[in-house]
């Protein structure tokens, strides 16, 4: 049996146990303990596959040469450097990303400007613009697939009424396929930006507009000198968020074209999938995946930087 002794005056107290108790009660110990279960789950579901992917990218697991498995080296990275398909896919990803960002931001800003001062039917107007977000990407892809159809799609039917414009096989023509996918993606994701912009517009004090009106600013000048500068951090955050979403977009492209026609819409994510599950070259696919992760990290760093600037109040209102 152990007995606990209280430190008597003049006696040295038990320093070690005092420190560890303080670490648990006042220091970060308790917080770490509480976070531990979540950290373990995250490590298991995110960390482990990442490590596995990195290992896989140095391995040689491919159905074309099953016997080569276990041969480690940088051969996949060397192949990536000189693979025109991979860099073509990166370029298409970049185009897709820029197209969806430009489309979503302008559409969302326009919709937010239109609806934030609406008083009658305000809820209906907002719901209309939020609706596409509630539709799963797979459903969006299927609906747009039907609309784009060359023979009976509604888009070509509507174009019949426009003089001098002919209908197209939107998803089959190499010239139009990527743009057609971008439009479907924009329709699906612009409500994310719309919500942010609506909140941003509501946070701009009405007095600024009133002061600008008295200072003789017209409607465009008020947009240029008040609205845009006041929204600049929200715009920056949304642009980077949409860049991340656009860069890793997959379901709409995969369902509508699968990367075709002849690779015209094969972005890095679709190429990664096709390499793994069509060409069955798992190691090279992992290498492409690592490339996608690196690009995403750069984008996330940009996002964090913008957030940090916004947090320090460099764009704060008075």
């Amino acid at each position: 049996m152990t007995t606990r002794m209280r430190a008597q005056p003049g006696e040295r107290p038990d320093i070690v146990s005092g420190r560890s108790r303080r670490f648990m009660t006042e220091g970060p110990g308790f917080a770490l303990l509480m976070l531990l279960p979540a950290l373990l789950v995250l490590g298991f579901v995110i960390g482990l596959p990442m490590i596995k992917a990195v290992i896989l990218s140095f391995d040689t697991i491919t159905f074309r040469r099953p016997a080569a498995a276990g041969t480690y080296g940088v051969h996949n990275y060397a192949r990536l450097m000189s693979d025109p398909d991979a860099w073509g896919a990166v370029l298409r990803s970049a185009l897709y990303m820029l197209g969806t960002v430009a489309g979503s931001v302008s559409l969302a800003l326009g919709a937010a400007l239109l609806t934030h001062r609406v008083i009658r039917l305000r809820a209906l107007a907002r719901l209309t613009f939020l609706l596409p977000w509630t539709v799963p990407a797979v459903v969006t892809a299927l609906v747009w697939g039907v609309m784009y159809d060359g023979n009976f799609g509604v888009i070509n039917r509507l174009l019949d009424f426009v003089p001098f414009v002919n209908g197209q096989d939107w998803l089959i023509d190499r010239q139009t396929a990527l743009a057609a996918l971008i439009v479907a993606q924009v329709w699906n994701e612009f409500p994310v930006a719309y919500i942010f912009f609506l909140a941003g517009l509501h946070s701009i004090p009405e007095e600024l507009y009133e002061a600008a009106k008295i200072d003789r600013a017209g409607a465009f000048a008020r947009f240029r000198f008040i609205t845009l500068p006041q929204l600049r951090y929200i715009i920056a955050v949304i642009v980077i968020l949409l860049m991340i979403l656009g860069f890793k977009a997959f379901p709409i492209i995969f369902i509508l074209t699968g990367g075709g026609p002849a690779g015209a819409t094969e972005t890095l994510t679709v190429l990664t999938y096709n390499t793994a599950f069509r060409s069955l070259d798992f190691s090279y696919s992992a290498t492409l995946g690592i490339l996608a992760v690196l690009v995403s990290i750069v984008l996330v760093l940009g996002y964090l930087r913008v957030m940090a600037r916004a947090d320090t109040g460099k764009g704060g209102a008075v």
Binding site: P205, E207, A211, P229, Q230, R232, V318
Partner: peptide, 15 residues
């Protein structure tokens, strides 16, 4: 052609 000073100043914060 009037000028106005507001209660909450209404200064343009980004300028």
């Amino acid at each position: 052609d009037i000028a106005m000073v507001f209660q909450n100043y209404a200064l343009y914060p980004h300028m």
